[in-house]
C-alpha cells in the first residue's frame, strides 16, 4: 500500500507506478462534465474558494445532504472518466494537477499529459459509493452549487485514506492499454483453439 498525502507534489507522484494501490489523504475537489467544460472555456473559480493548483480532481457527483447546517456526503462513487477526455489534458497542464480520480480509465491525450506534467490517473472502485463516502471526513465547501447543480458542483472534500489504484502513471504507462492488449491476444489464442 502506498500513500498520497497533501500537499501533493510532483516528486510523490513520479514515484507511483501503474498497478500501485494508493490511499489518498488531504483536500480534493470533485468535478465532472459541466465543470470540465466550464474550466476548458477559460473560466476560473475564485482562488480563495477553490485553488486547483497542484490539486486532485475527482470525477464524482456525490450525494450530499444538509443536516443541521453541515454537509454530509452519503454516496460518493466515481463516474465514468472518459467523457472528460477532451478537456482533461488542458486542465492538467493549466493547474499542474497531481491526480485525477475516476473510473474506466482515460485516453491517449490524458496519458501524455500525465507523463509531461507529472500527474496520475487514480481508479476508484466503481459502485463503492458507501465505502468512498465513509472516507470523506469533512465537506469544506462547495463552489457553483447554483450554477451547476449539486452533483455537478465543485465540492471541497477532506478525505482520509481514500482507496484507489494507479492505472495511468506519470511515466507514460496505462494499465488500461496493457490489459486491453493482453486480453485481446488471449482472446485470439482462445479462438484459435476453438477451430472445429
Amino acid at each position: 500500500m502506498k500513500t498520497l498525502t497533501a500537499p501533493f507534489t510532483e516528486e510523490q507522484v513520479r514515484q507511483l507506478k501503474v498497478g500501485d494501490m494508493v490511499e489518498i489523504t488531504g483536500l480534493i475537489y470533485t468535478g465532472r462534465d459541466a465543470v470540465h467544460k466550464w474550466l476548458s472555456e477559460g473560466n476560473e473559480p475564485p482562488k480563495n474558494e477553490v485553488d486547483l493548483n497542484n490539486s486532485i480532481i475527482y470525477h464524482c457527483g456525490p450525494v450530499v445532504m444538509k443536516k443541521k447546517n453541515a454537509w454530509t456526503v452519503t454516496a460518493a462513487g466515481p463516474t465514468t472518466s472518459i467523457r472528460e477526455e477532451p478537456y482533461q489534458a488542458g486542465i492538467i497542464e493549466k493547474y499542474k494537477l497531481k491526480g485525477v480520480i475516476g473510473k474506466g480509465g482515460m485516453g491517449e491525450k490524458t496519458r501524455i499529459a500525465c507523463q509531461k506534467f507529472g500527474c496520475v490517473y487514480l481508479h476508484a472502485i466503481g459502485g463503492a459509493a458507501q465505502v468512498l463516502a465513509e472516507k470523506i471526513v469533512r465537506v469544506e465547501g462547495v463552489y457553483g452549487y447554483e450554477k451547476f447543480g449539486s452533483p455537478e458542483a465543485i465540492w471541497k472534500l477532506q478525505v482520509v485514506k481514500l482507496p484507489v489504484v494507479v492505472t495511468i502513471d506519470a511515466h507514460g504507462n496505462s494499465l488500461h492499454a496493457e490489459i486491453e492488449k493482453q486480453s485481446s491476444a488471449e482472446l485470439q489464442t482462445l479462438f484459435a483453439g476453438m477451430k472445429k
Binding site: G19, I125, V165, T167, L175, I179, S183, E186, L187
Partner: peptide
C-alpha cells in the same frame, strides 16, 4: 482473458 475486477487484471 485476465481483465479482472474493474479491469485491473
Amino acid at each position: 482473458l485476465g481483465i479482472g475486477p474493474m479491469g485491473f487484471g
